[in-house]
Computed example of a mutant assay.
Amino acid sequence: MLLETPRLRLRRFQATDALALSLYRSDPAVARYQGWTAPVPLDEAVQLVREFGVGEPDLPGWFQYAVELKEDGALIGDVGVGLHDNLMQADLGYTLASGRQRRGYATEAVRAVLRDLFQRQGLRRVSAVCDARNERSARLLERAGFVLEGERPAFTWAKGEWTDDLLYGLLAARWGAWEAAEAPDG
């Protein structure tokens, strides 16, 4: 286990995760604002799980956490961290199965990853980019303490159209103050 929250385990991907990954990433509603196109066939998911499983969260490059429910062991999504070569900043992304959305799981998983990045790894900054139409994702970032830093109009060509990007950032100092204020006794 890499990270744990009251309801979730964030762990390495395993070969047995391929079917669940294929199912939730094949959902057009889940894929709508993502960089892949649904469906994600099982053979492609098998390859993705293989690639995700060999990454290292403390080394530069992308590491994908499998997000699993403690109550039944179901894979419900993933959180990706792109650690920069300088080991002081990272990019963040996340995906959650549509049937598991609106229950706070994504916020819980993202907060656990941020806590690890800032407290254990000592990062200075975490960034995230969000399709401007994805209001729920933007709200999640804001719930996790991120600040909207800018917008890039018609910046990304995605699925046959130009989309606006929202740029979010979170500095370690701001996260520390925000985390203290969010604590149950804070």
Rank of each mutant, 00 (worst) to 15 (best):
L3S: 03
R7F: 05
F13K: 13
T16S: 15
D17H: 14
L19F: 07
L23E: 09
Y24F: 15
R25M: 10
R32T: 08
R32P: 03
Y33S: 05
Q34G: 10
A38F: 08
L42N: 06
E44F: 10
L48C: 06
E51G: 03
G55D: 08
Y65C: 05
A66Q: 03
E68Q: 09
G73H: 02
D78A: 13
G82S: 12
L83I: 03
H84S: 15
N86A: 12
N86H: 08
N86M: 02
M88C: 04
A90R: 09
L92G: 07
G93H: 12
G93N: 05
T95P: 11
L96N: 05
A97T: 01
A97F: 04
S98T: 14
S98C: 10
G99A: 13
R103T: 04
T107W: 00
E108W: 06
E108Y: 09
R111D: 09
A112V: 01
V113A: 08
R115S: 15
R115M: 12
D116L: 12
D116H: 15
F118K: 01
Q119E: 14
Q121G: 08
L123E: 02
L123Q: 05
L123V: 04
R124D: 06
R124M: 11
S127Y: 05
D131K: 05
A132H: 14
E135L: 13
R136C: 05
S137K: 00
S137W: 05
A138D: 01
R139S: 05
E149W: 07
A154E: 15
A154D: 11
K159V: 07
K159Q: 14
E161K: 07
E161T: 10
T163Q: 05
D164E: 07
D164Q: 08
D165K: 00
Y168M: 05
G169S: 02
L171Q: 08
A172P: 00
R174T: 11
G176N: 14
E182Q: 15
D185F: 11
D185R: 07
G186N: 13
